[in-house]
Amino acid sequence: MTFHQLRPQIEEILGKDSLTADERIQKVCDLLQTSVPYYDWVGFYFKNGDKEELKLGKYAGEPTDHEIIPFGKGICGQVAVSNKNFVVPDVKAQNNYIACSIHVKAEIVVPLFKNGENIGQIDIDSHTEDPFSHEDEVFLEWVNERVAEIL
C-alpha cells in the first residue's frame, strides 16, 4: 500500500473520538506494520515525565526489552537530543545502536513535536537492508503531526 493510500486511513483512525489516544496510536502502529512490507516493527516512544529518558508507548511487532531508553543512547535516544530525523541504512555500521532483534537491518526514527517541544518519536525497524527513502521521512513526519493533534 502506498503512503498516499495510507493517509486517509490514518486520518480516519486518529479522528475516532470514541477511542482513547492510546487505542488510536495502537491502530496506527498496526496499520503501518501490516501495510508497509519493510516496516517490521513500528512503535512510539515518549518522554518519560521530567526524566531524561524515553518510555515505550504503543507498538506493533515483536516484543522488545527496551521499554526505557536514556537520552543519547541508541538511535532513539540520539533523536531525543538532536530533534532531527535519523535514518540508519545499516544498523551494524552504527556504534551507538541498541539491538532490539538480530533480524533488524535498518531503522528510521522521526521526532514527534507538540507545541514545538520534542515529546516523543516514531521508531521503525526493518529486516530489509537500506529500505527507507525521503518519502518515508516525509510520510512519518506527517503521521507524527497528526498524532500530536490527539495528544
Rank of each mutant, 00 (worst) to 15 (best):
Lys114Glu: 06
Cys76Arg: 02
Leu54Gly: 01
Phe86Trp: 00
Ser101Gly: 02
Cys76Met: 00
Val143Met: 11
Cys29His: 01
Ile25Met: 14
Glu141Thr: 08
Gly77Tyr: 11
Glu107Arg: 07
Glu149Val: 11
Leu151Trp: 14
Thr34Ala: 05
Met1Pro: 15
Leu19Trp: 15
Ile25Phe: 14
Ser126Val: 07
Gly77Arg: 05
Asp17Lys: 15
Arg7Ser: 07
Ser101Ile: 02
Val110Lys: 03
Ala21Gly: 03
Ile124Asn: 03
Ile108Tyr: 02
His66Leu: 04
Lys55Trp: 04
Pro89Ile: 12
Asp136Gly: 06
Ser35Ala: 15
Ile150Tyr: 05
Ala60Tyr: 12
Asn85Cys: 02
Val104Tyr: 10
Glu141Ala: 01
Pro70Cys: 02
Ser133Val: 09
Leu54Pro: 01
Leu14Glu: 08
Gln78Cys: 00
Leu31Ile: 09
Phe86Ser: 01
Val81Asn: 05
Leu54Glu: 04
Glu53Tyr: 07
Glu52Ile: 04
Leu112Gln: 11
Phe46Pro: 00
Lys105Gly: 03
Ile98Phe: 00
Asp90Asn: 15
Pro131Thr: 05
Arg24Ile: 00
Ala99Met: 14
Gly116Leu: 11
Leu56Thr: 14
Asp40Val: 08
Ala93Trp: 06
Pro131Val: 01
Phe113Pro: 05
Leu56Val: 08
Gly49Phe: 02
Phe139Gln: 03
Gln5Val: 14
Ala21Ser: 12
Asp40Met: 09
Glu117Ala: 09
Trp142Ala: 04
Gly61Ala: 07
Pro63Phe: 06
Val143Thr: 00
Glu23Asp: 12
Pro70Trp: 04
Ile124Glu: 10
Asp22Ile: 05
Pro70Gly: 10
Lys51Thr: 11
Asn115Tyr: 13
Ser18Cys: 05
Glu52Gln: 09
His66Pro: 10
Thr64Leu: 10
Ile150Val: 14
Leu6Ala: 02
Leu31Tyr: 13
Phe132Trp: 02
Gly74Asn: 08
Arg24Gly: 06
Tyr45Asp: 06
Thr20Lys: 10
Ala106Asn: 12
Pro8Ala: 07
Val79Trp: 15
Pro37Leu: 06
His103Tyr: 11
Asn96Tyr: 00
Val88Gly: 03
Tyr38Val: 05
Lys105Phe: 07
Thr128Cys: 11
Ile10Trp: 10
Phe132Ile: 05
Ala21Tyr: 02
Ile150Ser: 03
Ile75Ala: 08
Gly74Thr: 07
Gly116Pro: 08
Glu145Tyr: 04
Gly120Tyr: 07
Ser126Gly: 10
Ile119Gln: 00
Val88Ile: 04
Val87Cys: 00
